[in-house]
Design a protein around this nucleic acid. Structure first.
Length: 273
DNA sequence: CCAGTATCCTGCAGGC
DNA sequence: TGCCTGCAGGATACTG
C-alpha cells in the first residue's frame, strides 16, 4: 500500500544516501512484474553510472542518473526498498539488487509483483506510458484550485475519481478514504453532484491528510531504509480506513463499508453526506 | 470519451 | 488440522 506519503518518505531517505554514488553491479532474475523485470538489461544501462537526487511523481520513484537517464520504480502494493550491506540475508521475493560503490546494496522486494523497475533513457520520460498520463501531484499546494473543476466535470463517485491517477497523482485507497472522511463527503457521491465549495474542502483534505501522514512518516524516517529495514508503513491514526463497524471518532455512529470503484470503502453515514 | 469490471500475484484470514 | 475461498491492493485491458 505504498501511497504518496510512503513513497515520498522512501525518496527522502534515498536522497540522503544515493546522490554521488556509482552503480557497480545489478543483479536479479528476469521476472514478470507490472512490467517485465530484466536485470541484465538494467545492468547494461546502469552499471558505471552515478546517481543524482531521486525524484517522485505520484507513486512513482525516479532514480536519476547523472547522464540524464533514470530508473523508474513503482512499489505496487507489496513492494519495498532496502539499502543494506550485501552480506545480509536476502528476503524472499527480492527481484533486484543494485550494488553501490559505498559497499551498500539497494534491494527491491515485492511478493505480489504489482510493482516494477525499468530504465528510462534520457528523454524517454515524457513518453513513458506510466508517466505520460499522470495528473498533477496530490501534494501540489495549489490543489484547491485545479482539482475541484476536474471533479465537478465527472459523474463517477468521488472515491473513484480520487483514485484515478490521471486526475490527481498519488492517492490510493487508504488516503482517498481518509480525505473523504475529513471533508465530510460520502465516497459514493458523484463529482457533478457536489458543490464547488465542498469540492474545495475535499481538495484541502487531500492535501492535509497527505501532509499529516508525511510528518508521521518523517518521525520514523530512519527505520525505512535501515539495515534491519522494515519496509515502513506509517502508524498514522486513521479515522475511517480499516475501521468498518467501529464507532466514528467524531460522532460515534457505526462506520459503514461497501465496495466503491472496486475497492473496499469505509465511511460514516452520519458525518459524511 | 466515460464508467464499471476483470486481471495480474502472493499471503493471510476465516469458514467448515 | 487442512483445505478452500475470498480479500487485499495499483494500474491497465477490456466491455458496454
Amino acid at each position: 500500500m505504498p501511497e504518496l506519503p510512503e513513497v515520498e518518505t522512501v525518496r527522502r531517505a534515498l536522497a540522503l544516501k544515493l546522490p554521488g554514488r556509482r552503480i557497480e553491479a545489478v543483479r536479479g532474475r528476469r521476472a514478470r512484474m507490472r512490467r517485465l523485470l530484466d536485470p541484465p538489461a538494467l545492468a547494461r544501462s546502469l552499471a558505471g553510472r552515478r546517481l543524482a537526487l531521486p525524484r517522485r511523481r505520484g507513486k512513482y520513484l525516479l532514480l536519476d542518473t547523472e547522464d540524464g537517464g533514470a530508473l523508474l520504480i513503482h512499489l505496487g502494493m507489496s513492494g519495498h526498498l532496502q539499502l543494506v550491506s550485501p552480506g545480509r540475508p536476502v528476503e524472499p521475493h527480492t527481484h533486484l539488487a543494485i550494488r553501490l560503490d559505498d559497499g551498500r546494496e539497494l534491494r527491491l522486494t515485492d511478493p505480489r509483483r504489482f510493482g516494477f523497475a525499468a530504465f528510462l533513457p534520457r528523454g524517454a520520460e515524457a513518453a513513458d506510458p506510466s508517466l505520460a498520463g499522470l495528473g498533477p501531484d496530490a501534494l501540489d499546494d495549489a490543489i484547491e484550485g485545479w482539482l475541484p473543476p476536474l471533479l465537478k466535470a465527472r459523474r463517477a463517485p468521488l472515491k473513484a475519481l480520487l483514485l484515478d491517477q490521471r486526475l490527481v497523482a498519488g492517492l490510493g485507497n487508504i488516503y482517498a478514504t481518509e480525505a473523504l472522511f475529513r471533508a465530510g463527503i460520502r465516497p459514493s457521491r458523484p463529482g457533478n453532484a457536489t458543490s464547488s465549495t465542498r469540492l474545495r474542502r475535499l481538495a484541502g483534505s487531500v492535501r492535509n491528510v497527505l501532509l499529516d501522514a508525511l510528518s508521521a512518516g518523517g518521525t520514523t524516517l530512519r527505520d525505512h531504509l535501515s539495515p534491519d529495514g522494515t519496509p515502513g508503513y506509517f502508524q498514522v491514526e486513521l479515522d475511517a480506513y480499516g475501521r468498518a463497524g467501529l464507532p466514528c471518532r467524531r460522532c460515534g455512529a457505526l462506520l459503514h463499508t461497501a465496495r466503491i470503484a472496486g475497492r473496499s470503502t469505509v465511511w460514516c453515514p452520519s458525518c459524511q453526506r
